Amino acid sequence: MADHGRYHGLALELLTSALGSIGSRLIRLVLLLAAVAAASFALMAASPVDPVDAYVGGDIAAIGPEQRAQIAERWGLNDPPLERFGTWLANIARGDLGYSHTFNQPVADVIAGKFLTSLALMAVAWSLSGLIGFTLGVVAGVRRGRWADRVITWWAYTLSSAPTFWVGLLLLYAFSVSLQWTPICCAVPVGSIAGEVGLLDRLHHLLLPALTLSLVGIAPVTLHTRQAVAVAMASDYIAFARAQGERTFGLVLHHVLRNAAGPAVLLQFSSLGELFGGSVLAEQVFSYPGLGAATTAAALGQDVPLLLAIALFTTVFVYVGNQLGDLVHAWLDPRTHRAEVTA
């Protein structure tokens, strides 16, 4: 009976701790969204580009003052900034993200459709950069100071200083223009209906943009993993295992990989913001119709509702990714979780 009560108390304590942690994370997310919303709206309000002029474009002389005033009135541009901000927040609270004049669709529909296209691109690039970067980092750390380490480290430093836009242009010229192995643009063949395109064609168009994103993301994972592996290989417990006759492969498999995986996973999840920023450039190079390309189009057209919604969506996306990274890191290295609880 006493054991039952003790287990019940322990389960209740764990549940209370989990709920408290979730509540704390949600409060931080709400505060972060409020700060991002205020900062984004202030930047939009202070922009020197007039949204009506950007919307009309080259036909600005074709409309009269009355038509221009009607557009401004419809978008609420004549209201004071604080009043517009309050109206926008009230609409957000009701689930109304506004209407995109760039795509002539509700903002929620634009983000949902474009994000699904970008999700495949970012997921493939994120997975490739993590797997390749971790593998190269382990090899470089185990072979520290040798030729393999020098080559991998030089390659990682070169990639870390290479802009995504430049890497994309080089790959586009090499594989699409010169070798003609990959398509030049788009997510599906030109002139095809997206719903009628098969999986192989989609992967064919996805390959080069995903490779561009993954190449830039490989470098930090490689360098951090190399350092973690090198520290682990120089530790006392590795020296003791060597003295017991264990070979290098067994040392890496049983003692090093788990220790090195924690920092790599945390870094990989925390790079989601950079991944999204890189997708904006990659999608422009390859004319890939994802959320990154939509962000660029919204910025050029001063599509304020869409830009603000993308800012909030990206904040949630990156925040959730970071929290997942913390959880996976705590699972791989329980000492991190215990240290946080003690602190």
Score class of each variant (00 low, 15 high):
residue 260 A to S: 07
residue 236 D to L: 09
residue 137 G to R: 02
residue 279 S to T: 08
residue 67 Q to L: 05
residue 155 W to N: 11
residue 122 M to T: 14
residue 112 A to V: 09
residue 251 L to C: 07
residue 265 V to M: 05
residue 79 D to M: 14
residue 207 L to Y: 13
residue 248 T to Q: 13
residue 152 I to D: 06
residue 89 L to P: 04
residue 165 F to S: 05
residue 143 R to F: 10
residue 51 P to N: 05
residue 180 Q to W: 06
residue 300 L to M: 11
residue 326 D to V: 11
residue 28 R to H: 14
residue 297 A to K: 12
residue 164 T to P: 07
residue 234 A to H: 08
residue 214 S to Y: 01
residue 284 Q to T: 11
residue 173 Y to V: 15
residue 162 A to L: 10
residue 157 Y to A: 07
residue 64 G to R: 09
residue 256 V to W: 05
residue 297 A to T: 12
residue 131 L to W: 02
residue 126 W to V: 00
residue 153 T to L: 12
residue 199 L to H: 09
residue 285 V to R: 05
residue 123 A to L: 14
residue 89 L to C: 10
residue 322 N to E: 09
residue 56 V to D: 04
residue 93 A to F: 13
residue 209 P to W: 01
residue 130 G to M: 15
residue 285 V to T: 07
residue 227 Q to V: 14
residue 209 P to E: 08
residue 277 G to F: 10
residue 117 T to A: 01
residue 48 P to S: 09
residue 198 G to F: 06
residue 267 L to Q: 05
residue 209 P to Q: 05
residue 271 S to Q: 06
residue 308 L to N: 13
residue 22 I to D: 08
residue 311 A to F: 04
residue 279 S to Y: 04
residue 10 L to H: 12
residue 154 W to I: 15
residue 267 L to F: 02
residue 161 S to V: 03
residue 51 P to E: 00
residue 187 A to L: 00
residue 342 T to C: 06
residue 292 G to V: 06
residue 183 P to I: 03
residue 21 S to C: 10
residue 282 A to F: 02
residue 221 V to F: 04
residue 239 A to T: 15
residue 158 T to M: 10
residue 64 G to K: 10
residue 121 L to R: 07
residue 181 W to L: 10
residue 314 T to A: 12
residue 218 I to E: 00
residue 321 G to M: 02
residue 40 S to K: 01
residue 275 L to N: 06
residue 11 A to H: 12
residue 188 V to W: 06
residue 30 V to H: 10
residue 290 G to W: 12
residue 139 V to M: 13
residue 122 M to G: 09
residue 131 L to V: 10
residue 8 H to W: 12
residue 143 R to D: 11
residue 306 L to F: 03
residue 288 Y to I: 02
